[in-house]
Each structure stands twice: as structure tokens, then as C-alpha cells.
Simulated scan of single mutants.
Amino acid sequence: MNTPFPPPPAAPEKKRKLWPWFLGGCLTLIVLGGLAVAAMFYFGAKAVSAGGKEIVAQVPAVQEHFGAVTDAGMDFGAMMEASQAGRSVMIFNITGEKGEGRLVIETDQATQAFKSATLTLPSGETLEVDAATMKQLQALQP
């Protein structure tokens, strides 16, 4: 008489590994956090640049020598170099209808009040800003 073979043993249940999912979730959160920080930096820099453009465009000496201002972004690299040299300055790279130049505003380190300013014209000439323009800059100071 034939005897049937015993049924094959049941396959052991595979245990689900959670660590790949956990690691993937952590990496996703890190990437999203990095993107959020980059977005905040980008939009913050844009806001500072737009504010700088508004301030610089209101200065009559700038309007006279550059025409309508199309861009006036802050030069953070030059500001860091000046800071390392012990100077407290705000530097704006100005682009206008008549060319490009720079506005350098010296500030008091203790009070951050504007002390003096120089304007580099598209021709390369450097002008010391007069007292009336300095008063206007101080009035625009945040």
C-alpha cells in the first residue's frame, strides 16, 4: 500500500525589518529640513535686498548718478572682510540705468548709527556723501 508523503513543513514567517523604513524616514526629514532652511535663507536674502533697494533708491545722490535703480543688493562678502579688518560697514552694489557702482556706509560699532558714506560711481570715481544726503540716509535707517 502506498503511503502518502507527509505535507511539507510550513515556511517560516519572515520578520519585517523596520530599520530601513526608520532610516528612510530620518533621511527624508533631514532633506526636508535642509530645503526649509535653504528656502528661508533665499527668501530672507531677497527681502533684505528688496529693502536695500528701496532705501538706496530714495537717496537723491544715487538717483542723480545712477538713474532709476534696478538692483541694490548687499555685498555680504565685502562686509565680512571689512568686519574682519575692524570696520563696521554696510555695502550696497548698485545697478541703475546709467551703470553700476557701490554705496559704502560706515556705521558706529556701538550704536549702529550711520557715520559717513562714500559712493563709487559707474565711472569709477569715488564721492564722499554730503551732510544733507547723510541726514536722509539716517532718516531711512531702520
Rank of each mutant, 00 (worst) to 15 (best):
G34T: 10
A36D: 07
G96Y: 07
K115T: 11
A131G: 00
Q112F: 13
P60N: 06
I91R: 13
T133D: 12
L140N: 08
A110T: 13
Q109L: 04
G99Q: 10
E100G: 04
L27C: 13
A10V: 07
L137R: 00
L35C: 08
A117T: 08
R87P: 01
T118D: 14
A10G: 00
P7K: 11
V69H: 06
L137V: 13
A131I: 06
K14I: 09
L137G: 03
T3S: 04
V62D: 01
P9K: 08
P60E: 05
K15N: 01
G44T: 06
C26I: 14
C26M: 14
S83H: 09
L23S: 09
F22A: 14
L29G: 10
G96N: 10
A78P: 02
G99T: 07
A131K: 15
G101E: 02
W19Q: 04
V104E: 08
N93E: 12
T133M: 12
A85E: 15
P142E: 04
Y42Q: 11
T111H: 11
E128D: 14
M79F: 09
M134V: 09
G44Y: 10
T133I: 10
P4S: 03
T28K: 05
Q141C: 00
R102M: 13
L127F: 09
N93M: 05
L27I: 13
G44L: 06
K98T: 01
H65K: 15
L137M: 15
F41K: 12
K15E: 06
A10E: 07
G73K: 15
R102F: 01
Q136G: 12
M79E: 15
V31W: 13
E125H: 10
K53W: 05
Q112I: 04
A57S: 15
L127I: 12
N2I: 08
T70Q: 14
G99K: 11
L23E: 00
A110W: 03
Q138G: 07
M80T: 10
Q141F: 03
V129N: 01
